[in-house]
């Protein structure tokens, strides 16, 4: 038993080491890719974000009369079908079928020839290779779908991650910048406290006084900037952050134009309350989207004759 324990500990350590290695590798790769993609992605997003925002707003008008859950579920289902079709058109279906067969064959080989360790480990090796092949077949459809999906998810995030302020509700406006000479003005809200300078931040506490889409005018140093503020019913899109020029930030916050590179302000954020539904709200909406789109795709997979 002692030997068994040692083996288990050793295996556990090996797995942890592998996992850590994978994490570091992922970080490095991500950093590299980000640096490469940035110069291209930023102007591209500058062109795409307004278009996609208009399209998304138009699409969501049909759900104005319903709970946000309806829009989320319908959108997830539609996306499931759309992605299914795109996947079918862009993937090597024959190759995927072959790779899947190989995976199943090796899994069955492990079951059928379990008494022979040599065969079993051989099957493990081939299983690994077949798995990599299957992953390889995912590259093209993933590349095709990556950008539309990211744009779509970002738009959905503005609707289902947080909700607008309610009348009388308070929140914090945070401006990332170094200049202490700052002030805000606008309609639909009162400034209760601020600005309070923090670690490179200026923070105001504001209270919603009027329903509607408002603009907060921010004067900081020589710069004048705006930030949207939404007060009203659940389901309206909100922009948590007016991003800087970093492309990843622009990707996640598509509703407002980014702040120019040489401004004293790097970003402006409003802390909207999180949606508190078990379907929507922080991360739940994404899980709902994942499950609904997946289930839809699985159900309709035979109809569209798609293999994945």
């Amino acid at each position: 038993m002692e030997t068994l324990g040692k083996i288990l500990v050793w295996l556990g350590n090996a797995v942890a080491w592998c996992w850590s290695l994978i994490g570091h590798a992922a970080d490095s790769v991500w950093g590299f890719i980000s640096a490469v993609i940035g110069p291209v992605a930023s102007p591209l997003l500058g062109w795409l974000d307004p278009v996609v925002t208009i399209l998304a707003d138009s699409y969501y008008t049909m759900f104005d009369a319903f709970s946000p859950v309806v829009g989320l579920i319908v959108t997830s289902g539609v996306v499931g079908v759309a992605m299914l079709i795109v996947f079918r058109c862009t993937s090597n279906q024959a190759g995927i079928a072959k790779a899947k067969d190989a995976i199943k064959a090796e899994l069955l080989a492990i079951k059928l020839y379990k008494d022979d360790l040599r065969v079993m480990f051989g099957a493990q090796g081939r299983l690994f290779v077949a798995t990599l092949r299957l992953q390889g077949f995912m590259i093209v459809p993933m590349l095709v779908m990556l950008l539309p999906m990211l744009l779509l998810l970002a738009q959905m995030g503005t609707r289902y991650q947080q909700r607008p302020l309610r009348l009388g509700e308070r929140t914090l406006l945070r401006v990332v910048g170094d200049d202490d000479d700052a002030g805000i003005s606008g309609e639909g809200f009162d400034v209760e406290v601020g600005p309070i300078a923090g670690d490179g931040d200026l923070v105001w506490r504001v209270r919603a006084t009027e329903v509607g889409a408002h603009t907060i005018h921010i004067k900081i140093g020589d710069d004048s900037l705006n930030k949207s503020l939404v007060v009203g019913k659940v389901g309206q899109p909100v922009s948590v952050k007016r991003p800087g020029v970093k492309w990843t930030s622009r990707l996640l916050h598509p509703r407002e134009r980014p702040i120019v590179n040489d401004a004293a302000v790097k970003a402006i954020m409003i802390e909207y309350p999180e949606l508190d539904s078990w379907v929507c709200g922080t991360d739940w909406w994404f899980l709902t989207f994942f499950v609904v789109s997946m289930v839809t795709a699985l159900i309709l997979k035979p109809v569209f004759r798609v293999k994945f």
Binding site: F87, I96, P141, F290
Partner: peptide
């Protein structure tokens, strides 16, 4: 590494 890596039911499920 990122949550938005989910790129649809086909590829997502397969991966």
């Amino acid at each position: 590494d990122v949550a938005s890596a989910y790129v649809g039911p086909g590829a997502g499920f397969a991966v």
